[in-house]
């Protein structure tokens, strides 16, 4: 039997196409990019070996450090917010709406499939349509507040970006966590109820511990996605005002393709990759241990 499933020809036919695409278009470019981060210049101008200069430049580049800060704060805030809201929604679906939750679930999920640029432009229009203010400020005025120019400030832009991301993806996290909650055996919840656990105590002592694995994988998934945020911040306010809301991804794109600094761009890309790696390891280490316990 093992001889049949060890057939070299079959393995080659099935694995070789995938492996060659992967190596040619992913592994080699990653290695190439790693090498480029020690050079300066681009294909037209030629490359010059500069050793660790790019890394030194990165450490002293205020725009780069600011973009690291934008990426990290965006990822942390959005992850905390969307996993929390997603979990609350999931609890609402499972314990309050029960069988009647299908419509709400679907309606809240839908924006997830919309193109991110469309969502960003929608929110941009909600703030202002050209010179006219949008419904958001109309609503603020109706409650007696002053109109706010959200996109004129860094904090305002980030607030809108967080709300927008939450709006489009909390329904997804809700469905993800909802499927996790459905896996909790009915009897466990029932017997906890009979022992007198209700409301917050039932959630805190029974539901959250039992759904911890899926909660953690949501957090990892969310961090990985939000650290790579690019389209929403670009489309919302072009990384502005100035470059104050440009995440690392956008800073890399601009450095490499708008200013044609391939070498320094590769250094920024490496920083981004390391950032993703560190975040995943930080969440994964303690979590994998806890799940095994």
């Amino acid at each position: 039997m093992s001889r049949v499933f060890g057939d070299k020809k079959t393995i080659l036919i099935l694995l070789l196409p995938t492996l060659s695409i992967y190596v040619l278009l992913k592994v080699i470019p990653v290695a190439w990019s790693l090498g480029l981060s020690f050079f300066q210049g681009n294909t037209l101008r030629g490359f010059e070996f500069v050793g660790l200069d790019n890394f030194r430049e990165f450490a002293g580049d205020s725009a780069a450090l600011n973009s690291v800060w934008v990426s990290v704060s965006f990822a942390v805030i959005v992850t905390v917010a969307q996993v929390t809201f997603g979990y609350l929604l999931a609890l609402l679906y499972v314990f309050v709406l029960r069988k009647g939750s299908a419509f709400v679930r679907t309606a809240v999920f839908f924006p997830m499939v919309l193109p991110t640029v469309a969502v960003a432009l929608l929110f941009k229009s909600l703030i202002a349509v050209g010179e006219n203010q949008g419904p958001v400020n109309d609503a603020i005025n109706a409650f007696g507040g002053e109109s706010i120019e959200f996109l004129a400030s860094t904090a305002g832009t980030m607030t809108i970006a967080v709300i927008m991301t939450l709006w489009s993806s909390m329904g997804f996290y809700a469905v993800l966590l909802y499927t996790g909650l459905l896996d909790i055996p009915e009897e466990v919840v029932e017997s906890a109820r009979m022992d007198g656990a209700t409301g917050p105590r039932l959630v805190g002592y029974i539901i959250i511990p039992l759904s911890l694995p899926i909660l953690l994988s949501s957090i990892i998934f969310s961090l990985n996605a939000t650290l790579k945020v690019f389209d929403s911040l670009l489309a919302l306010n072009n990384g502005g005002p100035g470059t104050t809301t440009a995440p690392l991804t956008l800073y890399m794109y601009r450095t490499a393709f708008e200013y044609a600094e391939y070498g320094y761009g590769s250094t920024i890309a490496l920083a981004l990759t390391l950032l993703c790696l560190v975040f995943t390891l930080v969440v994964f280490r303690p979590s994998s241990k806890r799940v095994e316990d």
């Binding site: 393995i11 992913k26 592994v27 470019p29 990653v30 990019s33 790579k228 890309a269």
Partner: peptide, 26 residues
């Protein structure tokens, strides 16, 4: 299929999951 080194190859391919697009674009 059963062959020596398939675990390592799977790990090698999985390593690409986290690499952001920026790392290969240039």
């Amino acid at each position: 299929m059963i062959w020596k080194g398939r675990r390592q190859v799977l790990l090698f391919v999985m390593g690409g999951i986290m690499v952001p697009g920026q790392m290969i674009l240039v």
